[in-house]
Design a protein around this nucleic acid. Structure first.
Lengths: 344, 344
DNA sequence: CTGAAAGCGCTTACAG
DNA sequence: CTGAAAGCGCTTACAG
């Protein structure tokens, strides 16, 4: 490895002068500077980061941690979108990104997923899609005083900043829109209670509250379909629900876009077509739904912005260690596709 | 930050003994060891990696570099699948992964994407989906003697190992299978020549050669549809091609799975249904094609295995710097979906 | 404007 | 079995 010492020798100065040139300090004679720069170019010198890190206590690397298995189609989309916002922010700052998998509460943690953070390999952490941060982790983070930010959830720890979207509000306004389009019986495709997903349950709360506020004649709770993240399960549960209703709902609000294809398939088995017989609205907007064979009306999460915001928040805490926890809610936007019909 | 010195003080030994315990060296009295371990636990000490890196010259981090924009749906799937294979290998070795974006030849490189590698922030590099590695980069890599492996392409540099799949072979055998199922007129949906994609062009070569070897009556080249990666373009180009054929092909081989929905849509406009009128085969197998609304017959790339193999190859070169370039071709597997019919 | 010294946290010989 | 010394590549005061 080429070091400052090698450069110094070649340029005929001391290594400390080399350090000055490398760091762009002002107090170096122009002539000396040129000699050093020439030597750097000749030798292809680049400052090793370890020496610098040892002095500054900073490594200019952050970690992006997630419990999302990288091979999982839909969730890794989410991950990558957020990551792209993070990357665009940190690229400018010359800060690198370490990506790592962390188990969630309840997952088997057979390896030491905290090692990189203990070792001071990163200056901060962004969690993506972490539904619950394990206590042991929180304790470690506090001990090391590592700044961290969570994306897509709202951890209670006084140490973890977060960015999230307004899932409740978007759930609520989706129902308002359907209502304005004449829909009165609306079903909601949510998740089993055993699956903890704060986002989906917030969307569900919005659904329930909006229908109550609008004075729907029915109990919204009776129109909640509880299922799990699997094509076959969703298809089966939507089929079962729509088979059981005395009156078929005119609209179906899917809490996650990827529920739409299995739901459509289930409805087709009942000779119900989307949107002719049943309007459909989704949520998330990060799958290219043209692959679904239809232009789906949905709520779009501002994932890239969330990533960018998280990066910004993390960075500010890296720069000012005293800064307290920040919270930020970003609005969801509505995409008008072709799966909702106005009825009378 | 808690250091070995702090631990030493508390345990009443020298910091060098602490180092011994931390590194699991044998020559430490059991009693001393226990005292040190206790002090480590009390203080929550963990060895900082920078000091170690400075000594060993290794940072236990590798970089995964890709020109694939993180927000791009289909290609980031590919990326994540390969990444998951890489991660599973390196996790066991306690090696972390830095993820970074690199411009390809022809892309605008307005920032210094090589910085982390110059700085000796990583011990090796895996390129994913890099169609052409810029010369300037190759030069840097040679200079730093950074081991590297490319996934999904076959760079000529004598320095870059690679793992790839047998695209030509899979293209060839796909045609053989269709032929066995009675198909004689087969179209291929490929890419414009201006889009350099070695994988797709290998698949195309397999298509052409197989038809020639099988003694097809027509010129296979006349049945190649050239398009680009965009729903609307694919739809338009497939429509145009199928409108122009004197006799409609009985099968369509799409060089990439994501071409299937737009192709199906184009055929539908000609009143042709898949698979009733036209059989369809895809390539890649990493999109969950149930979202396409059909169970697509396709060639499945072993992405996770490719990632794992790349990691293995990189690691071996990290351990033995003298090791020369390795090359590895993994087989593609065939998935029997429901989009190919046997005809007579 | 330039250099000698000390130190960041660790490991690797070398003594004892 | 344990410690004092030197050094990894760099930066940060301090002298001159």
């Amino acid at each position: 490895m080429v070091t400052q010492k090698d450069v110094a020798e070649r340029a005929g100065v001391s290594f400390i002068t080399v350090s000055r040139v490398v760091n762009g300090e002002a107090n170096v004679k122009e002539e000396t500077k040129q000699k050093v720069l020439q030597a750097i170019a000749d030798l292809g010198y680049a400052p090793g980061f370890a020496g610098r890190a040892l002095n500054s206590g900073r490594v200019n690397t952050i970690a992006v941690l997630t419990p999302i298995p990288f091979y999982e189609n839909v969730r890794s989309f989410y991950l990558m979108q957020v990551l792209s916002g993070i990357e665009s922010f940190f690229r400018e700052k010359n800060i690198d990104i370490l990506i790592g998998f962390v188990p969630e509460v309840g997952m088997d943690a057979s390896y030491d997923y905290l090692r990189p953070y203990r070792q001071k390999k990163v200056d901060g952490i962004i969690f993506i899609g972490m539904r619950k941060i394990p206590d042991s982790m929180i304790k470690e983070l506090e001990l090391r005083r590592l700044p961290c930010v969570a994306v897509g959830d709202r951890p209670e720890s006084s140490l973890v900043s977060w960015v999230d979207t307004d899932n409740y509000g978007a759930g609520y306004s989706t129902i308002q829109r359907l209502w304005e389009n004449g829909h009165r019986r609306i079903a909601f495709c949510g998740l089993d209670k055993s699956i903890y997903n704060a986002n989906v349950s917030d969307r569900e709360r919005g659904f329930v509250q909006a229908l109550k506020d609008l004075g729907a004649g029915c109990r919204p709770e009776d129109y909640i379909i509880r299922t799990e993240y699997k094509f076959e399960s969703i298809e089966r549960d939507v089929f079962a629900a729509f088979s059981s209703y005395a009156e078929i709902p005119t609209a179906l609000f899917c809490s996650v876009d990827s529920m739409i294809p299995p739901a459509v398939s289930a409805l087709a088995k009942l000779n119900l077509s989307v949107p002719r017989d049943v309007s459909a609205v989704g949520f998330d907007g990060f799958i290219n739904t043209t692959y679904f064979g239809m232009d789906v009306t949905t709520n779009v999460q501002p994932l890239k912005s969330m990533g960018h915001a998280a990066a910004e928040m993390l960075y500010s805490r890296m720069e000012q260690p005293g800064l307290e926890k920040q919270e930020r809610v970003l609005p969801v936007s509505f995409y008008e596709g072709k799966t909702v019909l106005k009825i009378s």
